[in-house]
């Protein structure tokens, strides 16, 4: 593990998000350093995606602080998040199905000519370059993304996130819709981005993905953080116990661990 120095790239402090009377996220604090992958795990409805939506500006937190390199910031909408270099790959991919790969990649950040018209040529050219890096076989640049395969769509969503020099990447279940070969591709990409010094929040319910890629693992349980652990200091069973029972490695008994496999 690299020794942490200075403030983290992103720190979320005491974040609270409620929907009506339901506390989806309660007093959660989490952080990521440059070149680090944080695995964010938890059961359905644990609040992982909601927490990340606060960081990506899709649904701002009710209270709490977000600090980027130690400086408090406010992120009111997705546009402001992007200004800070926070890019998100949503679980739903958030693609406009009726337009092509280039239009999706530059959605909201279109390249324009000097007169303010869309520069489709430049956008398609840039898209071809990025997609070639991610998926050299990709050819369907002129068709609406709805006619692409799940893997290709995922590729477009990832291309959009990495093209704009992200510093912080939020990946919400990036491999959920993919086959084995494509999953391996995405894992390679995550390692590559990590090596480039990008801080990554990897939201997943696939414990193997997380153990494979993450440096630290933060476990959420009913809207709270159970704990954040160094990956190489815990076993998968201990993390499972955190996910399922909401108990930290020291609090869980051997009988309870045995029950996980029953």
């Amino acid at each position: 593990m690299t020794a942490p120095e200075g403030p983290p790239l992103v720190e979320m402090r005491d974040i609270n998000i409620a929907f009506g009377g339901v506390h989806a996220v309660e007093n959660v604090s989490i952080d990521v350093r440059a070149g680090e992958v944080i695995g964010l795990v938890g059961g359905n409805g644990a609040g992982k995606s909601t927490l990340m939506r606060a960081l990506s500006g899709a649904h701002p937190a009710d209270s709490g602080q977000i600090l980027i390199e130690g400086k408090p910031v406010t992120i009111a909408n997705p546009r402001e998040a992007k200004v800070f270099g926070i890019e998100t790959i949503y679980q739903t991919l958030a693609l406009a199905d009726n337009v092509d790969a280039a239009a999706n990649m530059f959605l909201g950040r279109e390249l324009t000519t000097r007169l303010g018209s869309l520069d489709d040529g430049a956008m398609e050219s840039a898209t071809r370059k990025v997609m070639h890096r991610l998926n050299p076989h990709f050819r369907n640049f002129k068709v609406p993304v709805k006619s692409l395969s799940g893997g290709q769509r995922q590729g477009v969503a990832i291309a959009r996130a990495v093209h704009f020099n992200a510093r912080i990447l939020i990946m919400d279940e990036p491999t959920a819709a993919l086959g084995p070969a494509e999953t391996a591709q995405v894992r390679d990409l995550i390692r590559q981005l990590k090596a480039e010094g990008i801080g990554i929040f990897l939201v997943s319910h696939d414990i193997h993905d997380v153990f494979d890629l993450a440096d630290r693992i933060s476990v959420m349980y009913h809207g709270r953080i159970v704990g954040t652990v160094q990956k190489d200091k815990v076993t998968t069973d201990e993390v499972l116990a955190m996910i399922i029972m909401g108990k930290k490695p020291g609090e869980v008994t051997t009988e309870e661990l045995a029950q996980l496999h029953a």
């Binding site: 992007k82 739903t92 958030a94 693609l95 406009a96 009726n98 337009v99 959605l107 909201g108 950040r109």
Partner: peptide
């Protein structure tokens, strides 16, 4: 067109 294709995606894209 993007809003028509996916209003949520448009919003998340910063439109």
């Amino acid at each position: 067109f993007a809003i028509g294709g996916n209003p949520d995606a448009a919003e998340l894209g910063g439109i």
